[in-house]
Design a protein around this nucleic acid. Sequence first.
DNA 1: GTAATTACTGCAAACGGTTGCAGGGGTAAC
DNA 2: GTTACCCCTGCAACCGTTTGCAGTAATTAC
Lengths: 372, 372
Amino acid sequence: MNRTYTIKDIAARVGVSPSTISRVLSNAPAANVVSEKTRKQIHAVVEELGYVPNVNASRLVKNKTNLIGVVIPGMEGTNIHSSVLVDRVFNVTLGGIESVLKNNNYRILLIFKNDKFVENKEYLRLFRENSVDGLIVWGAHLDDNYWEEAAGYNLLLINSHCERYDNLNYIGHDNVAAARAITRNLIRQGHRNIVYIGGNENISIIRERFEGYQMALAEAGVPFRPELCFSGNIGRQAVNRIAEEIAAGKLTADAIQCVSDGLALHCGYNLMNHGYRIPEDITLTGGDRIEDEYAAMTDWKFPLPTFRLNSFHMGELAAQNLLHKINGGITVPIRELLPVELVEPQTIKDKIENKALNKEKRSCPVRELIPV
Amino acid sequence: MNRTYTIKDIAARVGVSPSTISRVLSNAPAANVVSEKTRKQIHAVVEELGYVPNVNASRLVKNKTNLIGVVIPGMEGTNIHSSVLVDRVFNVTLGGIESVLKNNNYRILLIFKNDKFVENKEYLRLFRENSVDGLIVWGAHLDDNYWEEAAGYNLLLINSHCERYDNLNYIGHDNVAAARAITRNLIRQGHRNIVYIGGNENISIIRERFEGYQMALAEAGVPFRPELCFSGNIGRQAVNRIAEEIAAGKLTADAIQCVSDGLALHCGYNLMNHGYRIPEDITLTGGDRIEDEYAAMTDWKFPLPTFRLNSFHMGELAAQNLLHKINGGITVPIRELLPVELVEPQTIKDKIENKALNKEKRSCPVRELIPV
DNA sequence: GTAATTACTGCAAACGGTTGCAGGGGTAAC
DNA sequence: GTTACCCCTGCAACCGTTTGCAGTAATTAC
């Protein structure tokens, strides 16, 4: 681990000034092109000594880090429809972000957010201390406070957003359309007693899916009955209780729309234990289908209509837009919803006259990927 | 977004020199304590203006970033026993790393590694350009080359290691003991035709589990029969074929030891489709149990003996040791194996006289957590 | 009262690049 | 030959902290 070289060492060896080295290595701004000859010599010496510029010096003087902070919820508090499913969705999104960043010579600073992150406005500190050029924040809550100063910075919410600060940049999925399509198909199949199992309504994607459900009911003229709907912190116990109520005849249901596949699986498990056949006796639906053995297992046990996010693309779009904004290319708030894709198992598909979602996307068209 | 203040602004307002501000904010080294009075004034002004030191200036002069790079495999190429399961294990490990780092005022630089990462020695560049103080590398391969220069740096392999560079720091699980215990229990239950389904033997944890299997056989005097063992890139097709061979009587098996739960699930699925009952007709075992609906689903379909890693702790230990090393507290190569915990479903547990793993840990005792 | 400590604080030189400006040398135009 | 211009390179200031050293004032010792 020999001492590391500085730009001056290179300059001394080549016999030019440090400025010239700098200009060669950072691809001189048009005005000052270094001659081909010196350029070659410099590259040779750089190669020979294995010289690498000190990023901190560069960051200091350029006031630019080429770092994007990705903020994610801490590990505490996983529940029935978080954990594995969320891990997957998150990691795929991260992959999308990274794929764009690496092409633009950016790196990821990973930041775990705890309860106090928003309240203490730690996002501000990250910008002020020059830790990052931009911030992608995963897991905003609808009732979050303290984001008011965020609008002036290169900060973008992803996956879930915050209602009261609608001038914040946001990239997510069209959850309303997703749930609406699921409900609509259930109605087309003749179901009228559609139980809805949601979750924490303080998270925009949960709330939006519930809205989609209600919207579809309204559109079909099916009365909305709150007594069929469950929300809040839905866990194993809650699901068990709902299944028991159904089995005991206290709750009439010919279909159950669950906010996610994980929830649907547990629900199905409980119902089957009570002797129900799926989908013959009762139809289940889910959400957030992921492509692997987990999905395979779902289909293994019973057919489960669900929808598929495009998380990778969500990550790409987020990174792309943020970089574009950092470079001054976007001055208005960014706000885009990606369409989701409906997934219908064959057995159920047969029951439906025609599927609709992909034809009538409610979301704005996805902006072209902008190379930055 | 008003202009950001520098240490000089604070100095000017308080009427002292920048040095004094610096000394107050970075908790002066014993010799130069600043008087309580100035200290108070400074804190007041800092508070008032919302001043935050520029990390890049600090990093430059201190030659220290308080950043740990966490290197993970890129997103390309998931297979049957990667994806969701791996996501979870990885995210939990990351949580462990972060929990230690945040207490020591470190942050995580997330680095996706591609094919060329090792070959191009990009880890060296990260150190040379002063991007990180240390590196935690996930996903080393047994036959990796180009790590020879890593030993001189604060670099630590996690989860899987690299055979030929045994002077590299490494924190992982005791996979040999894990698989050995599983096999031993199968033998105790009277099984002799134990099929083994592994994976890419170029990954140390896969290879070690296979070694554990062979070790247990040898200890019990059961002959090792290579024709019962499968390795390489095991996917859905491979699992299907094995199940078919068993069903067709070409392969005699009264138990199948799978390297992971994901693999075991698919295997079980195929066998049940061929009319086998589990565990009555054939016993299956897995690995890498995770705590959530995924696990629940496994038990739902059939009892699956498996083992549980302590990934969170693995992450903690890695971070702890690395920090300790960075601070000069450790000079020898770090090398620790965490014990795994055997998980026995009750139905199968009844068949076994006594379980053994937790009593005879092969690994060294886990070092105390060292606050850095 | 003088000398010796001690307790603070300031000066100024780093850290390692970047960049506006100016200057030198060469070529072309006249 | 003089002037104008362009291409290339160097000078030196700057980015915002940190820290060794020195200096001053206050305190203590005698």
